[in-house]
Each structure stands twice: as C-alpha cells, then as structure tokens.
Amino acid sequence: MHDGWLLLLDVLGVLLVLVLIAGVWLVVRRRVIARDGGTFELSHRSRVDRDGRGWVLGVGRYSGERLEWFRFFSLSPRPHRIWLRDDVDFVGRRDRVGAEDVSLYDDHVVVRCGSADGEVEFAMSESSLMGLQAWLEAGPPRADWDSRPVR
C-alpha cells in the first residue's frame, strides 16, 4: 500500500513539472512573438455557423505585408492563420451579438473584413482597429498589370 502512495506522488510531481514547463513556454512564446513589436490582442472568429459563437482569443502581429494570428493558448511558435494585406479589405464594424458580450474583452469591437477566403471577423480594441485600418491603407496601390495593353 505504501508503494501505491509513492507512485501517486511521483505521477503528481511529474504532472506538476509538465504544467510548469508549459506555463513557462507560453510566457517565452509570447515574448518571442512580441520581440519585433507590432503585436496586439486580436480575437478571431473561427466558426461563423452560429451567431456570436466561435471566437478564439489570440495575438495579432504585423509582419511586412502579412497579418499573422497566433492562438493565445497554444504551444506552437508559428502563426495559426496568416492574411496578406492585398487580400484583406475592411468591410465595417458590427455590434456584439449574444454570447459575444462574455466571450470577448470588454473594450473590443467586432470588425468585419473581406478576404480571399471569404468574410473574416476579428475582435480588437479601438486603437488596434485604427492600426489595422492604417496598415491596410499603407499598402501600395493595387493595379491589375496583366490587363494593361501592351504597346
């Protein structure tokens, strides 16, 4: 019976160490993601089949022509989603619906954007929204060079 308790304590000790390692990794990962600056709290709506549901908390980062999105609770150092500046258009804002009041941060607004993959919804602070709009407008003017006549 005494050996059973020692085994249980060993298992609990290993689990505690694993949880601590995962917690430290989440902090280190967030620092690595933010080391180049340009990061902000950005929630992404991954499921749009039900009103107000499907939100995943995360961190956004501008990296040149790309908006990279990292899940908040993930051990992966790579972005989970990437949107290219040329493929994203600001559509507008909308009011929160249903469960969004509790699943999103209090100061975040819901933003609708068009993308190459269809409509995308983000939740971010007002200042992050201004940053997104500035980033989108700062891109080079779009031109369809293939449709110009050759002289």
Rank of each mutant, 00 (worst) to 15 (best):
151 R>T: 03
69 W>H: 05
2 H>Q: 09
142 R>N: 09
69 W>C: 01
99 A>N: 10
82 I>C: 03
75 L>V: 14
80 H>R: 10
64 G>L: 04
132 L>T: 02
3 D>N: 03
22 A>V: 03
94 R>V: 11
41 E>I: 02
80 H>M: 05
72 F>N: 06
47 R>P: 04
123 A>L: 06
114 G>W: 07
9 L>S: 06
49 D>Q: 14
19 V>N: 12
61 R>E: 10
31 R>A: 10
93 R>F: 12
64 G>I: 06
69 W>F: 06
145 W>E: 11
19 V>P: 08
30 R>K: 08
96 R>Q: 13
86 D>K: 12
61 R>A: 13
3 D>K: 04
32 V>E: 04
23 G>Y: 09
12 L>Y: 01
9 L>W: 06
35 R>K: 13
143 A>L: 12
82 I>S: 02
42 L>D: 00
112 R>K: 03
100 E>L: 05
93 R>E: 15
130 M>I: 13
16 L>K: 10
128 S>H: 03
138 A>L: 07
1 M>D: 09
135 W>D: 02
139 G>C: 02
15 L>C: 14
80 H>T: 10
4 G>M: 12
4 G>A: 14
109 V>G: 09
127 S>G: 04
98 G>Q: 09
144 D>L: 15
125 S>K: 00
121 E>M: 12
50 R>V: 11
98 G>P: 03
67 L>C: 11
52 G>A: 06
18 L>C: 07
14 V>I: 13
45 R>A: 06
131 G>R: 08
119 E>G: 12
1 M>C: 07
113 C>N: 02
45 R>M: 13
80 H>Y: 08
91 V>P: 06
147 S>T: 15
71 R>V: 10
112 R>Y: 02
106 D>M: 08
74 S>G: 13
95 D>I: 11
82 I>M: 04
51 D>K: 10
34 A>R: 11
8 L>E: 13
107 D>K: 08
54 G>D: 09
105 Y>Q: 11
126 E>C: 11
127 S>W: 05
120 V>L: 00
86 D>I: 08
51 D>R: 15
47 R>Q: 09
114 G>S: 14
134 A>T: 12
37 G>Y: 06
100 E>K: 05
58 G>T: 08
117 D>H: 13
96 R>A: 04
139 G>K: 01
22 A>F: 02
81 R>N: 05
104 L>K: 04
136 L>F: 08
115 S>E: 01
37 G>H: 05
128 S>C: 04
65 E>Q: 11
